[in-house]
Amino acid sequence: MQSATYTGLPRVHICFFTAVQNAAALRSRLIAAAGIDGTHGDVEREAVNFAFVDAASIVSHLHLRTAIYQALLAHSRGSLRTKTVHSEILFALNPSNNITEAIKRFGINDKTQALILVRVGNVDETVDGRAAGTLDDNAVFDRMKSLVQGRPINLEEGIEHATDWDMVKKIYKLPQISALRTCIQEVVVSSVAMKSVMS
């Protein structure tokens, strides 16, 4: 797992899992958690309080980092377009403003094999959204590992091998025959960085 602090922004934790076995179960657990009432719901929501990113649609470490940074900026400004900073990361990755589409394209799906978990901040938000305590970095990592049945590996290497280039070209409306991967990466990263001033 990688943890990093950005100037004036909360700490960010990222972990890459390969050979993920329980994508379908994780996805249904996420959906179910949203609908549970009371304290039990708060506990369950805190247990899955991460961004679940399907690594197939990520082209580089910088691509993911750029989306996280723009989501953190929106969060600190109070200008989130989605409900949480974690869903905002998926929203920031998608070139359009359609939230459902963003979650479908970049979020976990039943066939996900390479999965990236992102956690913003070290605060346990168990009770009514109020801070119930602070987690250290290792505790965040332990929670990630207890959720995902898969092997945690190095982030940069993981991303490099998981990318589905044809899908990326489709999502970012790049020509199918388009040339160099470095060119595609540059267009993709820049699109994510400038989304807030796109239109």
């Binding site: 400004r77 267009v187 990263v189 960085a193 400038m194 001033v197």
Partner: peptide, 30 residues
């Protein structure tokens, strides 16, 4: 705001046509 947006859009347009320009890394238009 308009000038930051304009500059970013011009750069992306260039990138999409494979003109060599610096890539965009972050935008805070406010």
């Amino acid at each position: 705001r308009a000038r930051v947006a304009g500059e970013a859009r011009a750069i992306l347009r260039c990138l999409r046509s494979e003109v060599r320009v610096p890539g965009i890394r972050m935008v805070d238009a406010e």
